[in-house]
């Protein structure tokens, strides 16, 4: 589904990602682990086209997208749930969801399934996005990415700063999405959360991949050591 080869990424003059190779196979949940500041979020941003990526290759379902502008990558079928959620604060929850349909030029409807996954959103449709709590904003951000049925879903630290009960809900939603056949790439620091849901993992340190493997074969303690400070 997604193949990244020899990817470099820069913020201005400084290099953040040195040489990344990463694959996400169709129908799998792949997780990218790592400490703060090693370039995990930058990696997702470079797939989205939000940072400068002078060399390397990003292929989505076999076609190269590294030269495409951000909006075209979204339209090619990448759903992005950024760190910090990035809900539009001054417009309503409903309008936030409707913006998720923009990949199809705003056509189509918000499927009822979204409200089944996140019942809380249905009660809050008229509220301003900025007035939701952190956990509600996270659910809204996931719902907003889902309304367009993307081929690849990318989550950036979905558990960060969120109360345990909602983390559990989000975990359930991700497993449900896997059953439905979604391909998912998650960036995380919270190892326990990943163990239950991911199939394959990569560990990133200082802008390169330092370990990878199947989650079922993972040596938990070594990995925990690699990603904790």
């Amino acid at each position: 589904m997604l193949e990244v080869k020899n990817l470099q990424a820069f913020y201005g003059e400084s290099i953040i990602l040195k040489n990344i190779n990463l694959d996400v196979q169709e129908g799998r949940i792949v997780c990218l682990l790592g400490r703060n500041g090693v370039g995990k979020s930058t990696f997702l941003k470079s797939i989205m086209g939000l940072v400068n990526t002078p060399c390397g290759s990003i292929r989505l379902q076999g076609s190269e997208i590294i030269d495409q502008p951000t909006y075209a990558r979204a339209r090619a079928g990448i759903g992005y749930v950024p760190q910090g959620r990035d809900i539009f604060p001054h417009i309503s929850v409903k309008e936030n969801l409707q913006l998720g349909l923009e990949v199809n030029n705003g056509k189509g409807n918000i499927s009822p399934e979204v409200y089944e996954l996140f019942p809380i959103l249905k009660e809050m449709l008229a509220r301003k996005g900025g007035n939701l709590s952190g956990g509600q904003q996270q659910q809204l951000a996931i719902a907003r990415a889902l309304v367009a049925h993307p081929k690849l879903l990318m989550f950036d630290e979905p558990t960060e700063g969120i109360q345990p009960s909602i983390i559990k809900d989000i975990g359930k939603v991700i497993l449900h999405l896997k059953k439905e056949g979604y391909t998912i790439l998650i960036v995380e620091q919270y190892l326990e959360f990943i163990l239950d849901i991911a199939d394959y993992y990569y560990v990133m340190d200082k802008g390169t991949i330092v370990a990878q493997g199947f989650v079922c074969d993972m040596d938990k303690e070594t990995i925990q050591h690699k990603i904790s400070i």
């Binding site: 502008p69 909006y71 979204a74 339209r75 950024p82 923009e102 907003r144």
Partner: peptide
């Protein structure tokens, strides 16, 4: 940035 990530040109 988020608007662009949702497919808005």
């Amino acid at each position: 940035a988020m608007a662009a990530s949702l497919g808005i040109n």
